[in-house]
Design a binder for these strands. Structure first.
Lengths: 219, 219
DNA sequence: TTTCCAACTTGTCACCGTCAAGATGGAGAA
DNA sequence: TTCTCCATCTTGACGGTGACAAGTTGGAAA
């Protein structure tokens, strides 16, 4: 009866998979979901495949996430948290306010290219529960980085509500987001090899620098 | 045996549904698909539901489209053709080159808001066969409008290949596309009522005008 | 040691996309 | 007019999916 010996569902052997029966299946499912998204894309995502990879039965996920949308919501939230980290990381390699703003955008695009399916998931209506608190907070935080970095440059602050945001910050976000979206979708060619990715990032830099060339002078 | 009397599959009564047995089921399925997308979104799309609405059996679509992706590809191509028309229509209400470029973007955003599911479909990898000739041509044409209109303003021409495109045109496209994407996804609030849509379009105008304010002078 | 209940499994359902094979009915030939 | 043919559509089946219901299990608390 010793449960299925195949798969990562080791019981008390310790170390990595923790033993699922009272380990964290939730986390294992999120990991599996990310892997499935990476390998098969958004449209190839399957709850049952996640369960399979986590070494549990097809109905197990329901005890941790209400349904498929519930799991995807957590994956998306995690994605936004990583996106925010990527923005900040790329930004903080620079000190000049102008370059910091550019860096934020570069980090944004880099995240999108390296996690295309997750990025798609994050910005798609219907696949995800937008009312979820963690998701809403993580999503807002990733935009907040633009607001902060923009404020460094121009010395003004803006309310975080989108509709009331300064058109200039929105222009920045829309530009970067649009570029990332088109890149992920493949409009600028394939992004499989490291060289292709480097090319694309170089193109992104040229586009963003072109945009900054005609931006208003710093305060 | 008289076939099913329910549904729109009238036989020889003439007028609208043409009679499917040798009318154009293909067109009827495309119409049905657009309706399903509008009502249920991309993730709620179903080939069988399209067949149901067209009044045919679940296997009938296979004789006109290889599979679900085949049908969606045609719907996406049609969407790009309409997007191109929307860009041109909005652009051609203006005569000043600067306002024409802005108008192109406004038409783009307006199309996205009024056909959110179709817009999502058009710019999503995996749901659609990007190698399809009609789709590729229609997609390129919608971007070509930006290139043309930008050229009117600055008097230069660019190769239509994206990677080699002038960063300035790409900036224009990415900005507009990013705004449209975020709007469709609901980042700027709901867009159900006419007033909400008008508000959003006004916001779009402000953002795009802000971008033009510091753009280089016309040639 | 016993009890209890959260975590997981098994089984089932309707629905999906796809494929194979059969039915049908209009167009063109006789 | 009548017959033949074949593109078009239908029927039926298969494996896979998400969701639900009910049963099983095993560790923590008593």
């Amino acid at each position: 009866m010793d449960s299925r010996t195949k798969g990562p569902a080791r019981r008390k052997s310790g170390a990595r998979p923790k033993a699922y029966h009272h380990g964290d299946l939730a986390a294992a499912l999120v990991d599996a979901a990310e892997a499935v998204l990476t390998e098969r894309g958004v449209e190839g995502f399957t709850l049952r495949e996640c369960a399979r990879r986590a070494g549990v039965s097809h109905a197990a996920p329901a005890h941790h996430f209400r349904d498929a949308k519930g799991l995807l919501t957590q994956v998306a939230a995690l994605g936004f948290e990583r996106l925010t980290a990527a923005e900040k990381h790329a930004r903080d390699t620079e000190t000049d306010p102008r370059k910091r703003l550019l860096g934020t955008g570069m980090g944004y695009v880099e995240f999108a290219i390296e996690h295309p399916a997750q990025f798609q998931l994050m910005f798609q209506k219907g696949l995800v529960d937008h009312a979820n608190e963690r998701l809403a907070k993580a999503s807002a935080a990733s935009f907040q980085v633009f607001i902060e970095t923009y404020s460094e440059l121009y010395g003004t602050t803006f309310p975080p509500i989108h509709k009331d945001a300064d058109p200039s910050v929105m222009r920045e976000w829309a530009l970067v987001h649009g570029f990332a979206t088109l890149a992920v979708q493949g409009q600028f060619g394939p992004t499989r090899t490291a060289a292709e990715i480097a090319d694309l990032m170089e193109f992104a830099r040229r586009v963003f620098e072109d945009a900054q060339k005609y931006a208003p002078p710093p305060k």
